[in-house]
Design a binder for these strands. Structure first.
Lengths: 145, 145
DNA sequence: CCCGCCTGTAATATACCACATTACAGGCAA
DNA sequence: TTGCCTGTAATGTGGTATATTACAGGCGGG
């Protein structure tokens, strides 16, 4: 399994807005062109990011802009905004452990907190990485050429 | 998205073997009964765990046993054994970023190492949790009743 | 030594989810 | 008010997780 590409699409989208948001008109079609996916997918992700308060969108002939600085936007923010993981958690649990078996009856109690701990570790790491870090790396790549 | 339940099935399976492996004959049907899934699924997971050297299986009227102590078996071992995540990594990346766009051309270079870092954090945490920890919690639950 | 239980595995079915695509109603700016 | 753009519904499609049936092959016990 893998975490949906909506997450990387979201980060890509924010990077493009930051990169040319001031100068050029950014639309879902422009973004879709850079990302390489269907504009409708982009609009959905845009909607998620708007709800999360990361970008503002005005309709008509307007444009899209960040509502925070790249340094204030973390991977975790995007990850949460696009609903990367199910409410049930990162790990799917088999649904019908046998309550008449001593193990089956207690496996959930024994594992749930441990799995949450693992997921939390991952999410904490995502809070450490910002859009600014991505922009820095892109800029230094661009200077090479 | 979620990580396949093969992982929790694997842990459950090992717990049952540890719990009644010495006394009673453990077969894929017995395990399937406790876990609540089809015996074929159990056999597949059993195969994965055998390949990974976590259990030994003898055919005929035999049984299944752990090849290590519960303390030596970590969540990470099971997670790797059952191929919980794709070779491409935990995060799916949109496949066609536009090489003619400055962002599209460099987004992979800018993000890949960061995503690997996140994944590694999660996996490192899984290395800290063992089957023994699970058995301890199950035993203490059993004492309550 | 042979029988029966069990594993290994292929083939197939099904349900669900991610992503693509078309279509169109509604809003905002020029 | 006009034209582009967003928001969103409806539908299609391929991939994947799990279930299920079926059967060949191996090993232990009688």
């Amino acid at each position: 399994m893998q975490i949906s590409s909506k997450f990387t699409i979201g980060v890509h989208l924010l990077a493009v807005i930051d990169y040319l948001g001031e100068d050029e008109k950014v639309t879902s079609s422009v973004l879709a062109g850079s990302i390489g996916v269907n504009p409708v997918i982009v609009r959905n992700v845009m909607g998620n990011l708007k709800e999360a308060g990361l970008i503002s969108i005005s309709q008509g002939r307007s444009g899209i802009s960040l509502t925070k600085t790249p340094k204030q936007i973390t991977f975790y923010d995007v990850y949460k905004a696009v609903d990367s993981v199910n409410d049930d958690g990162l790990f799917r649990f088999h649904e019908n452990p046998n309550p008449e078996c001593p193990i089956g009856r207690n496996i959930h109690k024994a594992m749930d907190s441990k799995l949450e701990r693992v997921q939390k570790r991952m999410e904490d790491e995502m809070k450490q990485i910002t859009l600014a870090d991505v922009m820095t790396d892109i800029q230094s790549e661009l200077k090479k050429n």
